[in-house]
């Protein structure tokens, strides 16, 4: 199966690989997927006082398309408000990376990951 150039680029030079301190109150962590399904994504965001995503990091276990989807979404959410980031759709990711139909679930996972990170951040902030 041939990968698109954008998938290869993100796979070979992933953006924002790493971790943020999950105990920091301004950090939201999303962990989605399952090892048995062949992909797990951890996506973390650091949110400023005024609700802007200052930093985003990811770690992903999965195929090239899963790694590329998570790398791309960290690029996209940086500088966005959490509302804007939460409205990113998997179809936008799939389109940007030209994912084939069997890899659409990778983009779904990336959307789920950012939503989970935002939800974690809100829970922490509310508590």
């Amino acid at each position: 199966m041939a990968y698109s150039e954008k998938v290869i680029d993100h796979y070979e030079k992933p953006r924002n690989v790493g971790s943020l301190d999950k105990n920091d109150a301004s950090v939201g962590t999303g962990l989605v997927g399952a090892p048995a399904c062949g992909d797990v994504m951890k996506l973390q965001i650091k949110v400023s006082e005024d609700g802007i995503i200052e930093d985003a990091k990811f770690k992903t276990f999965g195929c090239g398309s899963a790694i590329a989807s998570s790398s791309l979404i960290t690029e996209w959410v940086k500088g966005k408000t959490i509302e804007e980031a939460g409205s990113i759709k998997n179809t936008q990711i799939a389109e940007e990376l030209a994912l084939p139909p069997v890899k659409i679930h990778c983009s779904v996972l990336a959307e789920d990951a950012i939503k989970a990170a935002i939800s974690d951040y809100k829970t922490k902030k509310g508590a």
Partner: peptide
């Protein structure tokens, strides 16, 4: 362990 096979093949 901890590295997905298809991702590895791409590498």
């Amino acid at each position: 362990a901890f590295v997905e096979g298809e991702g590895l093949m791409m590498g």
